[in-house]
Design a binder for these strands. Structure first.
Lengths: 135, 135
DNA sequence: CTGTATCCAAACGGATACTG
DNA sequence: CAGTATCCGTTTGGATACAG
């Protein structure tokens, strides 16, 4: 057991305020916290990638969803879209400075999930077993 | 400039494996990265909260969604549900040890969103304006 | 207070076909 | 290559009513 008071996160941003400000936060969290958005941001952490490469790295995302998500992120100012006027069209996506502040937590989150996926799977089995045969 | 074409991700955990393992990661990311899950975890960072309190702190979530999300998180082993056999039923939810590793990135993420919500809103306005009047 | 169950509309999201 | 448009099944999620 440790502290039950102030934690390591100083900013009073996550307090129990429930105003219009919080509405925006909820909305944004729904967009950025989105499954695909997290993976896209994670995939671009090293540098720019083109459309097809992005689709491969993310894995399992349809063309449609990738396009839609990229547009949203671009609109939110989190990534730039650069079109190279070449014969075979080439488009590269890159994180903006704004997105870089987001990079650390997102990467940690993705890594945590990757590291603990198996453990979570175990917990699910236990939970499901308890619901079915015990209790 | 180094080679950046169709390369894979560097980090140990976010490999390019497109197998069942990565499928699980995507799935989990979709659940934990969920709008409500992030807010619930963020809301519980200080300590246990009961159902109604949780609903207030999160704000804007329906009873149904709160219940469903709590069950999911419980199933994943991220929080515990304690029922106090009192006359007016009281149920408290608390993060597990497992969830604590998730706490840092989630809190950072939520705080980033809260801090930059306004900036993102501005980017959206700019983007929308460009689509309508320029190009 | 803390849920569960049902109804139902809206959004999500894949598959496919087509374009520049 | 990098999209856009459409169809259409699946899922999400609020509202409401009811129960322990």
């Amino acid at each position: 057991m440790t502290d039950v008071e102030t934690t390591t996160l100083g900013p009073p941003s996550v307090c129990q305020e429930a105003g219009a400000e919080n509405q925006m936060v909820r909305d944004l969290l729904g967009r950025i916290g989105d499954k695909w958005s997290l993976m896209i941001i994670g995939a671009l952490h090293k540098g720019p990638l083109r459309f097809s490469a992005l689709q491969q790295v993310v894995g399992g995302i349809s063309q449609r969803m990738l396009t839609l998500n990229l547009r949203q992120l671009q609109r939110d100012g989190l990534l730039t879209r650069t079109v190279y006027p070449e014969v075979p069209p080439r488009v590269e996506y890159e994180l903006t400075e704004l997105a870089h502040g987001l990079l650390a937590p997102v990467l940690q989150l993705v890594n945590w999930v990757a590291d603990n996926a198996d453990l979570v799977r175990k917990h699910r089995e236990i939970y499901d077993a308890e619901q079915g045969g015990t209790a």
